[in-house]
Design a protein around this nucleic acid. Sequence first.
DNA 1: GTTCTGTGTCATCCC
DNA 2: TAGGGATGACACAGA
Length: 742
Amino acid sequence: MLSLKKYLTEGLLQFTILLSLIGVRVDVDTYLTSQLPPLREIILGPSSAYTQTQFHNLRNTLDGYGIHPKSIDLDNYFTARRLLSQVRALDRFQVPTTEVNAWLVHRDPEGSVSGSQPNSGLALESSSGLQDVTGPDNGVRESETEQGFGEDLEDLGAVAPPVSGDLTKEDIDLIDILWRQDIDLGAGREVFDYSHRQKEQDVEKELRDGGEQDTWAGEGAEALARNLLVDGETGESFPAQFPADISSITEAVPSESEPPALQNNLLSPLLTGTESPFDLEQQWQDLMSIMEMQAMEVNTSASEILYSAPPGDPLSTNYSLAPNTPINQNVSLHQASLGGCSQDFLLFSPEVESLPVASSSTLLPLAPSNSTSLNSTFGSTNLTGLFFPPQLNGTANDTAGPELPDPLGGLLDEAMLDEISLMDLAIEEGFNPVQASQLEEEFDSDSGLSLDSSHSPSSLSSSEGSSSSSSSSSSSSSSASSSASSSFSEEGAVGYSSDSETLDLEEAEGAVGYQPEYSKFCRMSYQDPAQLSCLPYLEHVGHNHTYNMAPSALDSADLPPPSALKKGSKEKQADFLDKQMSRDEHRARAMKIPFTNDKIINLPVEEFNELLSKYQLSEAQLSLIRDIRRRGKNKMAAQNCRKRKLDTILNLERDVEDLQRDKARLLREKVEFLRSLRQMKQKVQSLYQEVFGRLRDENGRPYSPSQYALQYAGDGSVLLIPRTMADQQARRQERKPKDRRK
DNA sequence: GTTCTGTGTCATCCC
DNA sequence: TAGGGATGACACAGA
C-alpha cells in the first residue's frame, strides 16, 4: 500500500510538474477529488490529512475557496493570510518553526489578469484539456474568468450539470436540482463529485452512441457551466467573482495597479475579511495587553547587542534555550518596550517619547522597509509607542537612522548581563570559580545544579550523611537520648539477664560500657571491630567502642586478631582487654563495683537506685558509680550533640544547594522569557513593517511613515491615519495617565 | 614532630 | 532540688 501510494504520488507529482513546465495548469486537487476518490485516499490519505498541505488546505476552506492556488493573486492573498495568521498568533507566542512551502510555479503565457484564471489549466480527467494545451488562448476568452472560478465552484460541487446536447432540459433541470439540494444539505464535494461522476458515466454510457464529440461538447459546456455560481436556495446562477475575503484582501493590500481603498479602513478589510470584528478586536487587545506588559523589564538600550547577536550568541549557547520556548502569557511584561528589531528597521520618532500605553485606540505606525525616514514612522500614539518605553524612544529623528536606543536591546542586555554577572554573582555569594562555572554549565546541561561539595562538610560519606539524617529526627528531642538509653539498657542487658552473675565474671570482664554510635549506625555492636569501617569517619579512630557489648559478646569482640591468637598468650589477651576498657571501666574494676558500667549508665533512675540499694557500697564506690553514670550520660549526650551539629551542617548545606538550584532555575527561566519576549517583539515589528510597507496611496506609492501611522481602532479595525492625528491622540492618551496620577 | 580528627570529659545552663 | 539533656571547651589518642 505504501509503495503504491509512493508510486502514485511521485508519479503524479512528476507528471504534474512536467505539465506545469510545459504550460499546462494541472489541478491535482480536482483530479484527485473528482475522478478517483479512492486514489486520492491512497495518495493523500484520509481527508484529515488532506488539509495539511497549504495548497489543498486553502481550497478546502472557505477562505481559500474561489482562488486558484497558482493564481497570481495568491501572492497577495497568501501574504495577507500569513500576516493575519501571524497577528493572530501574537497573543499565543510561538517561535516560528521551519516551514517549507513548495509551489508549482506556472506562468500564464499571455499574462492573464490577476484574479482571473486562464483556461490553460485542465483537470486531468478531462481529456478536453489536451485541446486547451494546444491553444489555451484560442479558447473562449470571454469565459476565462468564469472558468477560473468555475474550478473553484467545482471544488464545492456547485458545478452546473454538463450540458449535453442529448440531454433533455428536464434531465438538466433534475440534475441541477439534485446538485442544489446536495449543496444546500452540505454534501461534501467528494461525495458529490463521485456520485456525479458515476452519474456522468451512466449518462455517458447511455449517450455513447452519440459519439465522443458530444461528450467533449458536454465537457466543454460543463466547463462553461462551472463558471456560474449557483445559489443553493434559489438556484440562481451568477458569475463567480472574487470571494468576499479575497476582495477584501485585495482591497486591503492594493496592488500597484489598483487604487487603494480609503485610508480610514485601509487595513480593515485585511483584518476583518475572514475574522469577525469581535474576534479580531479581542486578538488585538490581547496583543496590546502583551505589548503593554512589555513596558517593564527594559532598563537599558543595546539594540546592537540584541539584534546583531549571532545565532551562537551567549544566550543561546550558554543557556541552551529551546528555540520554540513558549512564553508564559501570565508573565508580567510591564515596562518592557519594543526596540528596533533589526539593524535595518529602527523606526523611532521623537514623538514617541513619553508615549502612553493606549488601549483600543492605539495607533500602529510602522514604516515600510523601503522608507528612508524610518525613524519618523513611529508616532507617539502608535503601536510602536506601545512597544517602546518613552524614555527610550525620544532621541530619534527622521534621518538619524538606526542609532536609536533599542529597548529590546535593553532586554537582551539585561539577559546578557544576567548571564555575565552570573559568575560574579556566584563568586560574590561564596561560590568558588569552579562552582560558578558549574552554575554556568547548568544553563547548558539543564540537569540541575551540581555543586562541588567535596570541599564542604557534606563531603562526608553518604553513609555518614544518611545516618546523621536518620538520627536527626531521633535526636531532635530529649526522647532521642532516652530512647537510646532504653535501647542501650536492653542491649546492655544482653548477657545480664540475671543479677546472679558472679562479680568475678563482671570484674574479670570489666564494666561494659555502651556505644550508641555503633548501635545506631551499624547495629553491629558485636561484630568484629574491623566492620566499624562502615563509619568512615570512625574507621581511623582507635577508641574503645565496646561499651554496650555484653560480656559474652565482648569476649568474641575483644578477641585479638588471629595473629594475636596465634601468639596466644593469656597475658597478651589480658592486655588487649585492658586496652579495650575505658578508664571508668578500669576504675570500676579497681573499685570492685559489683555491676557493669552499662547498668550504671543506662538503668533508669529508679532501677539504678534499687540496684545500689541491693549492695553495700562504700562512699568511694558510690561516688565512682555516680561519676561513671554521669560521664556515661554526658558521653551519650555529647555524641548526640555532635550528631545534631553534623545534621545541622548537612541540612544547611542542602538548603544552600536547593536555593542555589532554585536561583539558577529562576535565572534560566528569566533568560528564556527575555528571549521569547525579544522574538515576539521582533515579530511584531516585522509585521508592522510588512503591513505598512504594503500600503499604497492612490498613486501606488508607499505611504511615508513620517506622515502616516497605523492605528488600532476600538472596533477592531486597523486604520491608517495621518501622523498629526496620531500625535494628537498620543498626547491625549498621555494626559490621561497623568490626570489619573493627580 | 605536627596537624587533623574523633572522642571523652568537664563545666555549665536549662528544663 | 535532683536528675538529666544540651553544649562549649578542653584534653587525649590515633592516623
